[in-house]
Write a protein that binds this DNA or RNA. Structure first.
Length: 301
DNA sequence: CCGCGGGCCTGAGAGC
DNA sequence: TGCTCTCAGGCCCGCG
């Protein structure tokens, strides 16, 4: 499911229930998700206060008073829901995509705020791992992640620099978390459409080589790179504002749907008319590196 | 080192 | 109704 806007939506939903609150009890209801739980998973959580809920790329990170960080990934189908203790809402008002199905509630945190925070993940591609904060820099799961697409360091120059020696397509480069961390299949398709760039274009065409400087080849961003960065910013910000996109599994922690899927211009719109004024093209789909790409062949060059 | 394809899981939807 | 097949928002790993 979740790309950066969905994970950010979840982060904002977890904050009021978890920040400043103590984990009174933690339940891991099976021995593994994508990976086995650490043996001391529960004991390192219980009794700890959560000081902050952060996000890095598609990872959620809960800072604990012990100096540990709880790293959480939603995989393809993971979601959280928050049950407020005494707010009057009944559990029936909160649900995942398959509301009758509690079989995939794999992790539960009982917070001193009175909230229960429940992680549900039918496909179990998600996972949780506790890492000492001082060891975060060496964590293999985080090592090699590229810049945050909404952070200050991500700009056209940086994108061009990391693409200019790539041999792959623009689509594949943007999905590569080492190039920019947080985009997935939907938002890559949407950003390329908004930037009017072909997913088939070589990633290296975002840069003009500027010769050698101290033996290191330089790269100047093209106008295409600038346009693309603008499109990435715009689509992510709009999607966050909409609470993410709900296709199958994504829900806000309140159980509400995100609604950015109504603003898709190409994703899952094969056969529809291109929305660009006067284009007249038809949205097409093809498979690229094993994933569906949606695009308008007429206006994306 | 890089890029690609397979595999991990379950469930929904299409077609027969 | 029920079977089979394809596909799904991610990412690790092994191969060439």
């Amino acid at each position: 499911m979740p790309e950066l806007p969905e994970v950010e939506t979840v982060r904002r939903g977890l904050q009021p229930a978890m920040e400043g609150s103590k984990i009174l009890k933690a339940e891991a209801r099976r021995k593994d998700l994508r990976f086995p739980f650490q043996k001391d998973f529960v004991s390192r959580l219980e009794g700890q206060t959560v000081t902050a809920i952060g996000r890095r790329a598609k990872y959620l990170m809960a800072d604990l008073t012990s100096g540990d960080v709880l790293l959480m990934h939603l995989g393809m189908s993971g979601s959280f829901r928050v049950l407020e203790g005494s707010s009057g809402k009944t559990p029936g008002q909160f649900h995942h995509a398959r509301s009758e199905d509690r079989a995939h509630d794999h992790v539960v945190f009982h917070m001193s705020s009175g909230a229960a925070v429940i992680f549900n993940d039918p496909r179990r591609f998600g996972y949780m791992k506790i890492i000492a904060r001082h060891a975060l820099d060496n964590e293999p799961l985080l090592k090699g992640l590229g810049p945050e697409p909404l952070g200050n360091e991500f700009d056209a120059a940086m994108l061009a620099a990391s693409c200019f020696n790539k041999k792959t397509s623009l689509k594949a480069a943007l999905l590569d978390q080492r190039v920019v961390a947080g985009l997935g299949n939907i938002y890559v398709c949407e950003a390329l459409y908004r930037a009017r760039l072909s997913p088939r274009r070589l990633a290296a065409t975002l840069a003009t080589k500027t010769g050698q400087r101290k033996g290191v080849a330089g790269a100047e961003p093209t106008d295409h790179a600038k346009r693309l960065v603008g499109a990435i910013h715009a689509v992510l910000n709009q999607a966050i504002k909409a609470g993410g996109s709900s296709l199958r599994d994504h829900r806000q922690t309140s159980g509400e749907l995100g609604y950015f899927q109504h603003s898709f211009q190409v994703y899952d719109r094969e056969g529809e008319k291109c929305q660009t004024a006067d284009c007249g093209g038809i949205v097409r789909r093809f498979t690229q590196n094993g994933r569906s790409t949606f695009w308008c062949p007429k206006c994306q060059k």
